[in-house]
Simulated assay, not measured.
Amino acid sequence: MKKLTRSTTDRWVAGICGGIGEYFEIDPNVIRVIWVILSVLTTFFPGVIIYILLWIILPESGEARPVEAPFEA
């Protein structure tokens, strides 16, 4: 199952657009252009805030994630 993660190989700042491009299997540069256009049309503020939130929320690809232990009665 595919997981949305930040890219560690195709990144300019945090790897958000690279990770989205890898997830949807499209060129990350297309994602970057769309992101910039939408940010400019919304006066930058929402685009920057969403980018920062995704930077905080999304793990990097290959990063260890906590695994829940199975419940034992």
Rank of each mutant, 00 (worst) to 15 (best):
A73I: 06
K3H: 13
I52W: 06
V13Q: 07
I16P: 02
S61A: 11
W55S: 10
P46L: 10
I20T: 06
C17A: 15
V48Y: 12
E63V: 05
R6Q: 11
D10K: 15
A64T: 08
M1T: 13
I52E: 07
G19D: 03
R6I: 04
I57R: 01
P28V: 04
Y23N: 02
E63F: 08
I34R: 11
V36S: 09
I50W: 09
D10T: 14
L53K: 04
L54A: 04
I31H: 08
I56Q: 00
R11F: 15
R65P: 00
W35F: 11
F24L: 07
R65V: 06
W12G: 14
W12N: 10
T9E: 10
R11H: 14
G15P: 07
V30H: 09
I20A: 06
L58T: 01
W12P: 00
E60K: 15
P66W: 09
V40C: 11
E72A: 09
G62K: 05
I57G: 00
F71A: 12
I16K: 00
P70C: 05
F44G: 02
S61D: 02
G15N: 05
Y51I: 00
W35P: 00
Y51A: 04
G47M: 10
R6Y: 04
R6S: 03
R32N: 10
P46Q: 09
L53W: 08
L54I: 01
L41Q: 08
T9I: 13
I37Q: 07
R65G: 06
I26R: 11
L58A: 02
G21Y: 12
M1R: 13
T8L: 13
G21C: 07
E22P: 06
Y23E: 04
N29C: 04
P66A: 10
G47N: 11
